[in-house]
Each structure stands twice: as structure tokens, then as C-alpha cells.
Design a protein around this nucleic acid. Sequence first.
DNA 1: GTCTATAGTGCGATAGAC
DNA 2: GTCTATCGCACTATAGAC
Lengths: 196, 196
Amino acid sequence: MVRWEPGTPERLQAAALELFATRGYERTTATEIAQAVGLTERTFFRHFSDKREVLFHGQERLAEAFLAGLGAAPPDAPPLQAVAWAVRSAAPFFSEERRPHSRARASVIDSNPALQERELCKIASLATTLADALRARGVADLAATVAAQTGMALFGVAFARWVSEGEERAFADIAAEVFRELLRLAGEAAASPGAP
Amino acid sequence: MVRWEPGTPERLQAAALELFATRGYERTTATEIAQAVGLTERTFFRHFSDKREVLFHGQERLAEAFLAGLGAAPPDAPPLQAVAWAVRSAAPFFSEERRPHSRARASVIDSNPALQERELCKIASLATTLADALRARGVADLAATVAAQTGMALFGVAFARWVSEGEERAFADIAAEVFRELLRLAGEAAASPGAP
DNA sequence: GTCTATAGTGCGATAGAC
DNA sequence: GTCTATCGCACTATAGAC
């Protein structure tokens, strides 16, 4: 028998998600989450810098997947292609088995502005990470920033649709559709008389 | 002599910006801000739902400007053009006289993650507002979402450059450059062999 | 592991404007 | 009288310091 069970952050996360889903985020205290897995409030805050963070544990792996995907893109792929590649490579992250869990998590986040802020912040941080990686590939500063920020905006749209009620298509298909839609809109805008 | 000075939120905002700039956001309490203009902490929270919000007072007018700009776009303008139109019409909002104030505000926000989260949230809220307005113009759901989210991502890039140190170009010029860069990147991506 | 500052809320009281 | 801006106090939870 071990002194403490392993995977403490994961167990805290699971307990938090369940409590948030039933009682609501604000009506759940950090102490309650900790007690649900036999720990103290102090231990909770040792693992997570703040209460919201418990729902975002494990996201570093998403950034890694994006970077790996970017690395796997052909070296001569144009920036927006490379970003699409990165997003596509995150698809296994959003598998069918994970969808119910992601839906539960999304519904908790949707019902609380503070959590939405944190989610936006995480996506924005992915964007700057991606932009840095593009610059490291030799992409010019403005192009890297625009491609990364646009790509992460599209990722956000695709993810929101993937977890939306009734949606059954795979993440990769939705993401591809969203990227295609941007190319269509951009082509349309470029062809229009008042183009910038 | 009146019982209460008018423009309480504005005075609180000015005091807050100055205190945040000198002592830092976290080292400034809501009580101190309130006392700086002769009020109590309770009154501060009567005007602002939380401490961060004091830096975002007046942003509703930006949303109005965007919507007005969208309304001024030709009815047959393609969605991305219409969004560019909306962003362009926010230019008077970012005039040369306001740049120093915007820079001071941006530097406070840049130095605090909690404030960055709130700023991202405000931009995201602009995006959903714009998407709704596009749908009201008859734009299809996906196109409206993609155009609005992309447009606000570009707005964020343009704004960040406008307030960056040493930047002297007008906001409208920067925004136009950023939108043009997206069209260029999209054209490049569409022409590439592995296009989605 | 304990202590404490601060954010933020709820309710009631006050005091002038209308 | 009503309405609204303000204050005062008691209270909880977060989060960080010791």
C-alpha cells in the first residue's frame, strides 16, 4: 500500500468536473473538491495555481501535439497550410471516446464566464506558441502572427462545433470544413471590388 | 454644489489606471482606488462587477462602432469585406490623441495575466456580436462565425501593433495591412498542393 | 499546515433629488 | 412619498505568505 494514490491532479480534475456539473462552478468550493478525493484545500492549491485551472490540466499535451504537427508539415508548406496541418494533427486528441467527456467539460465552461476567460487564454497562448514556431521555420513576423492567430480562431470554431449538441462528425472533418470556409471567404473578399 | 460628482466610473477608471501603472495591478486594492476619488470600496463594486472591469469601462462603444461600420458596408459586400469595413470604422476610436492612453492601459494589461484574460474575453464577445449581425444580414451560419472570429483575431493583431512601442502608423493603415496579409496567406494556401 | 489579506456579496441605513 | 448613489458592516472563499 502506498502513502498516497498516484494521479492526484487527475483525480482532483475528475471530482471537480462532477461537482461543477451538479452543483455549479461557483457553488463548489476548492475545499469540497479536495475532500471528495480525501485531500485538503491546501493540497488542491499546491497542484493548481487557481480554482479554474483544475479544468485545464493536461492541455500542455495539446500544445505539444500542435508543435509536432507543425514539425511534420512539409518545410515548404505555406504558413496557413502548416497551421492547418498542426490543427489536423490534434485530431487524435479529440477522439470519439473523449467526446462525452469534452462535452461535459464544455458545458461547465459554457455556463461560467470565468472559465470561458481561461479557455480563451489557453487558446491565445497556443496561438503565440504556434507563431513562435512559424518564425523559427523562417516565416516573416507578420505572416506568422496572422497565420497563427487566424488558425487558432478557426481551431476554436471547429472545437466548439465538435462538442456542440447533436454534432456527430469527426473533429478532423469539421476542422477541414472550417479551414476550407476561410479560404472560400478570403477568395470571395479578394475578388470583391472594395478589397483592402 | 452637487451632492455627488458626475462621471464616477470615469474617475475611478483614471485613478485605477494611474495606481496600476505605478504600484502594479495586484499591489493595488479596490479600496485604494475608491479612496483615491473619495469613495468607499463598496461603491467601487457597485460600479464594476469586479476589480478588472474598471479598465474596460466604455468598451460598449467599440461594439457599437463595429456594428455601425457593418451597417455602413454595402449590402452585397462579402462577409470578410464587411468585417474589414467594421474594423476600419473603429479607426476614429483609435486616434492619435488616444494612443498614449491606450499604450499605458496596454502596458498594465500586458503585465497581468488576469487582465489579459479579460481583454481576450472582450474581443471574443465582439466576435459573437459581429457574427450575429452578419447572420442578420443573411450570411450563412458557418460563414458568419468564421468571418467574425477571423476578423476579430485580425483586429487583435492590428490593435497590438498599434499600441506597440515605436509604432507610428495610424490604426487604419495597420488594420488594412493585416487584412491584406490574411488574403495573401489564404491565396497562397489555396494555391498550394496540399490545400484542404 | 496555519494565518491572513483581499475580492466580492448581501442586506440595511442614509441622504439628497424629484 | 419614490428613486438612486452612497456608506457600513458582516460574511465567505480564494489565494498567497509564513
